[in-house]
């Protein structure tokens, strides 16, 4: 069984060095006898007049969210990998990469969908549009974390 304790979320200031990250993952894990490495690369789109996106991250809870996913993946002999940007990321560059490695493709293909969707809904990351050099909270695209409203 893979030692998963050393696999952490990789955070970068600004846009992600995509080739460096995905090549490193491939080199690290292709020798672990995973038959499937499925990578999702998120790219910032030019829409609604934005120059890019900006991100705040709360690392302690992101780490615990990721570690819980790692345990869940490991039950299916898979591992999850993730990199994300902090701060500003301009259009047509990457802010988010997720990957699943598993012995067989079906587990990885299904898990990448669930992993990315749960990330979107639960990971403690806040997105802002960059418009004319100002950050505007992307409230209409944001999702309340499960259990929200406890103090209301």
């Amino acid at each position: 069984m893979m030692d998963i304790s050393n696999i952490k979320v990789e955070l970068f200031d600004g846009d992600l060095p995509v080739e460096q990250i995905t090549n490193a993952w491939y080199d690290q894990f292709r020798l672990s006898n995973y038959g499937a490495i499925v990578t999702f690369v998120g790219v910032v789109r030019d829409e609604d007049g934005i120059d890019g996106l900006s991100f705040d991250i709360y690392e302690p809870i992101l780490s615990s969210w990721f570690d819980a996913w790692q345990k869940k993946a490991n039950e299916k002999n898979a591992i999850v990998l993730m990199a994300h940007s902090k701060g500003d990321v301009l259009n047509h560059t990457s802010s988010y990469i997720a990957a699943v490695c598993s012995p067989k493709r079906r587990v990885a293909l299904e898990m990448i969908d669930e992993f990315v969707e749960d990330f979107k809904a639960q990971a403690p990351i806040w997105k802002y549009d960059i418009i004319d050099g100002q950050r505007e909270y992307a409230e209409d695209r944001s999702t309340a974390i499960t259990g929200a409203g406890l103090l209301n």
Binding site: G42, F55, Y58, I61, H84, S95, Y96, V116, F119, K120, A121, Q122, A123, P124, I125, W126, K127, A138, E139, R141, S142, T143, A144, I145, A148, L151
Partner: peptide
């Protein structure tokens, strides 16, 4: 800690 609605990625 209070965590408002999120949107990573």
């Amino acid at each position: 800690s209070l965590l408002p609605p999120v949107c990573g990625g």
